[in-house]
């Protein structure tokens, strides 16, 4: 079974994001970029399935500017076998609908039986690509996975939902999106980082797949969220009790 894992290069989750003062977006100049955290869980899960003898090949794909090659190399160093970069213009974020369309073309060429995506990209926080791709392919979907097993041509997935945990079975080929508790992603070892440099990685563009990536959403402004008023330091539990009573809530 071949597994395809789409991974996105995003601002590192530890970076304090700054909004540009002219309202045109956030400042991405000279900030640390990393693999989207949920995508690390996806890569890890795919590699574990390969180690367990269930998967035969792990293919990673990233749609983004040239530097996304670094992110693909990280996934190859973790243990993925092969990468595809679909290069896009610098500074332009491709919307999930267009990402899903590009991925659907790659699926048609590569015929994977399982796609593992992150549940959301921590830059746009959209949480949409996996579900959209499942619709385009007319495949079953299991989102927000915290547990995954492959059994009798099905993915048995435990999903983190608002009311607890739901387990569903999805016939393969299928789309799974990962939640952070699915696994603990490994770090790439130095020898594996060296080996990853020799693993196959091809570079394509969106036009190679005939996909129109024109955005459907126009960003008008990007602003700082409203800030909160300064905090009052209290000296004791008694003061806190008094303040809480003043609010009239308790």
């Amino acid at each position: 079974m071949k597994i395809l894992v789409p991974i996105k290069r995003v601002i590192d989750y530890n970076v304090k994001v700054r909004v540009k003062s002219d309202g045109t977006g956030v400042d991405l100049a000279n900030v640390k970029m990393s693999m989207n955290p949920f995508d690390e869980n996806s890569v890890e899960e795919a590699i574990r399935l390969k180690e367990a003898g269930i998967a035969t090949e792990v293919l990673v794909v990233s749609i983004g500017e040239k530097k996304a090659v670094e992110t693909l190399r990280t996934a190859l160093a973790m243990g993925a076998d092969r990468g595809i970069l679909v290069e896009t213009e610098h500074g332009v974020d491709i919307e999930p609908l267009a990402v899903a369309k590009i991925l659907s073309k790659i699926v048609a060429e590569e015929a994977p039986e399982l796609l593992i995506l992150g549940k959301q990209a921590i830059d746009n926080d959209l949480n949409a690509t996996g579900q959209m791709l499942a619709a385009l392919l007319d495949w079953g979907q299991a989102t927000f996975a915290s547990g995954l097993k492959i059994e009798d041509g099905k993915a048995i997935v435990t999903r983190e939902v608002d009311s607890g945990l739901q387990t569903i079975a999805v016939s393969l080929p299928a789309i799974v999106t990962t939640d952070l508790r699915l696994n603990e992603p490994r770090y790439a070892s130095l020898p594996n980082i060296m080996k990853a440099k020799k693993k196959p990685l091809v570079e394509k563009t969106a036009t190679d797949y005939g996909v129109d990536t024109t955005p459907r959403l126009k960003v008008l402004t990007t602003e700082e969220p409203a800030s909160r008023t300064a905090s009052i330091r209290l000296g004791s539990v008694d003061e806190l009790v008094e303040k809480l009573k003043e609010t009239g809530i308790v």
């Binding site: 601002i11 304090k16 994001v17 909004v19 956030v26 921590i122 830059d123 746009n124 926080d125 459907r216 959403l217 126009k218 960003v219 008008l220 402004t221 990007t222 602003e223 700082e224 969220p225």
Partner: peptide, 12 residues
């Protein structure tokens, strides 16, 4: 977006 670090106004 960005875990609430920014608020985007978008037109569809």
């Amino acid at each position: 977006i960005y875990a609430g670090n920014a608020i985007q106004t978008v037109a569809s």
